[in-house]
Design a protein around this nucleic acid. Structure first.
Length: 295
DNA sequence: GGTAGACCTGGACGC
DNA sequence: GCGTCCAGGTCTACC
């Protein structure tokens, strides 16, 4: 099965894939031969498929080796549109960015879109895995969750989809601690999965919720394990850029950029981007910090 | 509202 | 090889 999906220009699949570290967390992957984005995905029917997404004129193509029913094709299209933000419009951000040398490249590079998982559940779990852990630890925990609790791809059972909320809700804290080595994050992931399964938390509805960002943020902060950094990260994934996801790295680069290396906290980081208003998160995310990371 | 300490893991380091 | 220390956000108890 092959689908062609249009994207609002400017668009660059490479820019989306390299927008942050999600590409290194399974079930995302990169195709060695084409450089395209791969994804093992469990469809609503239970069918586990591998998607190969490649850039094409005006958008992307999606290839799945299996034959899919119409409902499954529609689901694949819907999920890919969301993952890549194909309809997102950054014209207002680009207009402001043209005036800032540290963001001068964003429009030319078609930056702005951030790779996201098909479900907010998966993005929330992964965000919790990024907290209080180095990147290697986040990758290790994500791999463990996927390999141990995700359904296998039939033609290549070594590969697995991301576990469904039902599958994670059916396990227990000790298993998540012992086999996936989530540490103290285990009860957070478990509580999240059980809340989604019970219906007490409707994460998917937040994607289209027409409520102020501050209210959406409060909703996210009510999830155990989601603090200010995690909420801001999830807001970015939801297309709300009013807050900066302040972690220790953000404090370091802002310190060196504007405070002569003196220690700074979240207040100073937010203040540094205050004038970007509803584009704060994107301005921070795509700011040219390159000379700092080389230091 | 602000702050200190605990939470858990892996890596770095010293012995 | 073993023990200790540290980094990484969030939660909870306490003031």
């Amino acid at each position: 099965m092959r689908l062609a999906l249009p994207a609002r220009p400017p668009f660059s699949l490479s820019s989306v894939v390299r927008s942050h570290g999600w590409i290194r967390l399974p079930p995302f992957g990169e195709d060695d031969g084409t450089g395209g984005l791969t994804r093992i995905e469990q469809l609503d029917s239970g069918h586990v498929v591998e998607m190969l997404i490649q850039e094409a004129t005006g958008g992307v193509t999606v290839e799945v080796e299996d034959e899919l029913r119409q409902a499954e094709r529609d689901e694949v299209a819907r999920k890919v549109k969301w993952m890549l933000g194909l309809n997102q419009d950054f014209a207002a951000f680009y207009a402001l960015a043209r005036e800032e040398p540290k963001l001068a490249q964003v429009e030319e590079r078609a930056q702005g879109r951030v790779l996201r998982s098909p479900t907010l559940f998966e993005d929330t779990v992964k965000t919790i895995l990024t907290t209080n852990a180095n990147w290697a630890g986040t990758i290790r925990m994500a791999k463990a969750l996927v390999s141990q609790f995700g359904d296998p791809l039939p033609v290549d059972p070594i590969q697995h989809a991301f576990p469904t909320p039902d599958r994670l809700a059916a396990t227990d804290e000790q298993t998540l601690r012992a086999s996936a080595r989530l540490g103290y994050r285990a009860p957070y992931v478990l509580e999240l999965a059980r809340a989604v399964v019970s219906g007490s938390l409707d994460l998917e509805s937040l994607k289209a919720a027409e409520i102020p960002t501050a209210q959406l943020r409060e909703h996210l902060l009510s999830i155990k394990g989601v603090g200010e950094y995690a909420a801001a990260n999830l807001l970015m994934l939801l297309g709300r850029y009013d807050f900066v996801p302040v972690d220790s790295w953000a404090c370091r680069v802002v310190s060196h950029e504007w405070h002569s290396g003196e220690p700074v906290g979240p207040t100073e980081v937010e203040a540094a981007f205050e004038h970007w208003r509803e584009w704060k998160g994107l301005a921070y995310w795509f700011w040219d910090w390159s000379y700092k990371s080389k230091a």
